[in-house]
Design a protein around this nucleic acid. Structure first.
Length: 242
DNA sequence: AACCAGGACGTGA
DNA sequence: TCACGTCATGGT
């Protein structure tokens, strides 16, 4: 796979996914646009401090966990009035763990949430105006925030144009020949970023589309068997032509 | 009844 | 660096 062909294939992949699945919309769940997710064509969502915190919390809760369970945990936190950085810090960790039980790994995630909440109180207000890489590096220093969670928070909470790579994206990219199974996180991320404009809304929607598509075609044992993307990208002139 | 979900950490080689 | 076990609940 040559860089030049990726320059066409990556944008073509976005077009194909958009045609297959339409706009997605993800965050926030309870703040702003409640029940609708963010508006995929309007920048600046979330616009409130509470909305940004909800996205940060959701990014941690969804680690290796289905979003359905995360939504239940977020609703529970909202009902208790605990979906707030200052409140979350003050809680006993085991209380917090009980509240988020349905999202799994509650003992770990409750500690991660409190660590993140501390950072949010200290640095959260400055995060929006700092450089994307600086924010990313700061988040990566927090226990419980790895590459994907850091990029998710930077992209969806603070509108930084950083591309999120997850297990689904790896499977799709491998299927399409973008990289091998042993490609690092940074390599996959660079392949998307170097072949796309640094556009926050594009990155947000692209990642959501990849996840939606993979849920349909790359879950279970027969991964990618019925996936229509290879035919669309390599045989259909409509997408090859950009 | 295995297997998986919008991963990250700790360990040993 | 890197492969591997661990963390936990809920759905298929």
């Amino acid at each position: 796979m040559r860089p030049k062909s990726l320059k066409i294939l990556i944008p073509a992949l976005y077009d194909a996914l958009l045609e297959l699945h339409g706009n997605q919309g993800w965050w926030p769940v309870t703040q702003e646009c409640s029940g609708l997710g963010y508006h995929p064509k309007i920048a600046g969502i979330p616009s409130s401090r509470a909305g940004r915190f909800e996205v940060c919390a959701g990014a941690i809760l969804t680690q290796n966990t289905s979003w359905k369970q995360v939504a239940l945990a977020l609703e529970q936190l909202t009902a208790l009035g605990w979906l707030c950085a200052e409140k979350m810090i003050a809680l006993d960790r085991t209380e917090l763990a009980t509240a988020i039980r349905q999202a799994g790994y509650a003992n770990q995630k409750s500690a991660y949430l409190q660590t993140m909440a501390n950072w949010f109180v200290q640095e959260g207000d400055n995060a929006a105006s700092c450089a994307a890489d600086d924010l990313r590096d700061a988040l990566l220093q927090l226990k419980g925030i790895g590459p994907e969670t850091a990029d998710s928070i930077a992209l969806y909470a603070f509108h930084k144009p950083t591309f999120v790579i997850d297990a689904y994206t790896r499977r799709i990219g491998e299927k399409l020949g973008f990289w091998s199974s042993k490609a690092t996180y940074g390599m996959c991320r660079e392949i998307f970023q170097s072949n796309l404009p640094a556009d926050t809304l594009l990155y947000q929607e692209f990642h959501a589309l990849l996840v939606q598509h993979a849920k349909q075609y790359y879950a279970g044992k027969d991964r990618g068997g019925e996936c229509p993307l290879p035919k669309m990208l390599f045989d259909d002139a409509k997408f090859r032509a950009q």
